[in-house]
């Protein structure tokens, strides 16, 4: 709907295109996520964070998901859609704690039903189907939102899960962040299918492709899919086309396998500037707003970093304390042994 200079191409103008407040909220979320990413990557380089996976260039997908989900919905996320998590109340410091090696980062203080980041590829997809089944069984007006990458669509878990979502007509949406690269594998080596959305056909559910860097188009399609799921009309796959402007993670060097020129070209299509141009053209946004947003977001990120760095380490015995609801007797001795202070 939006071209790369922020012009609205569609003649049928959706409500969101004129919703200044909502668009600004989305823009703020995307900008603060980008600043967060930059900072997290820096912390990793300085040895203050473990391996980190950036969402650079893909912020619109997470922001739009987070903006449209209801509080009571459940998010099953892999490791890039931070913007969605932040929108849902997950703290930046919690994400830093997670990548900083502290399980407390998965003990979200808000979004208590959301699953933590899922590392084994596509394994969150069947889980989301289970949650959606529970919602349907209890006749709740809730939706499970499952986000996955393009690589995940090659895994059996994904096929098994979308197939089941179709059988039971479940309240679920599957959002595929197609950033074109699954670590080193480009899409044409991942699948011979023309699109990832068309995989929905095999499951008998709806599937569509959307420009994942076009916030307005994303918003329209996701909103429709969420409303459909919530009304009992079943599942949708949304393939959001974007581009991974970053390395896979901080442990990766994409120059081994990816042409730098391709990356440069894709900066032209990234979602933040596109939405910014539109906001400016609409008269919703000024340079002063922009300056204020950046300084406020930076401050928010710095506060989160401080909170992260000042969080006390967990005690060694915490390894045992959440393993079972009640620690089996057989583990008490092991737990006690870890609490004995080693002689200096």
């Amino acid at each position: 709907m939006l071209d790369y200079e922020g012009n609205l191409l569609d003649t049928n103008i959706p409500d969101i295109a004129n919703n200044q407040q909502q668009l600004i909220k989305l823009y703020q979320s995307m900008v603060s996520t980008r600043l967060f990413d930059k900072k997290a990557t820096l912390l990793q380089r300085r040895g203050q964070l473990g391996t980190y996976s950036s969402s650079l260039g893909q912020e619109a997908i997470g922001a739009t998901i987070g903006c449209l989900m209801h509080d009571e919905d459940v998010l099953f996320n892999y490791y890039r859609e931070y913007a969605a998590q932040f929108m849902r109340g997950v703290k930046m410091s919690e994400i830093l704690l997670y990548w900083g090696g502290n399980e407390q980062g998965m003990n979200f203080q808000k979004a208590r039903h959301d699953f933590p980041i899922c590392i084994p590829i596509a394994s969150q997809v069947p889980q989301a189907v289970g949650a959606a089944y529970a919602m349907q069984l209890r006749k709740q007006q809730r939706v499970a939102v499952c986000v996955l990458g393009d690589g995940a669509t090659s895994k059996g878990d994904f096929y098994e899960a979308i197939n089941a979502a179709g059988i039971w007509n479940l309240p679920i949406i599957f959002v595929i962040n197609n950033n074109r690269w699954a670590i080193s594998l480009p899409q044409d080596k991942q699948t011979h299918a023309q699109t990832l959305a068309q995989k929905a056909i095999a499951a008998g559910i709806a599937g569509e492709q959307v420009d994942g860097n076009d916030t307005i188009a994303l918003y329209c399609r996701l909103k429709k899919a969420l409303e459909k799921a919530r009304s009992g009309a079943g599942a949708t796959i949304i393939e959001a086309l974007t581009y991974r402007l970053c390395d896979h993670t901080t442990a990766d060097d994409a120059s081994h396998y990816r042409n730098q020129q391709e990356v440069q070209e894709n900066w032209h299509y990234e979602p933040i500037q596109r939405l910014k141009y539109y906001l400016i053209k609409q008269g919703y946004w000024s340079n002063a707003d922009e300056e204020k947003l950046y300084s406020q977001s930076q401050e928010k990120v710095e506060t989160a970093v401080k909170e992260y760095l000042n969080t006390p380490e967990q005690s060694p015995e915490s390894m045992f304390d959440y393993l079972y609801e009640t620690l089996p007797d057989t583990l008490v001795e092991q737990r006690n042994s870890i609490m004995v202070k080693e002689p200096k």
């Binding site: 069947p126 889980q127 289970g130 949650a131 089944y133 878990d157």
Partner: peptide, 8 residues
């Protein structure tokens, strides 16, 4: 996987 989502 479903059982995990249901249990949670």
């Amino acid at each position: 996987g479903m059982a995990i989502g249901m249990a949670a």
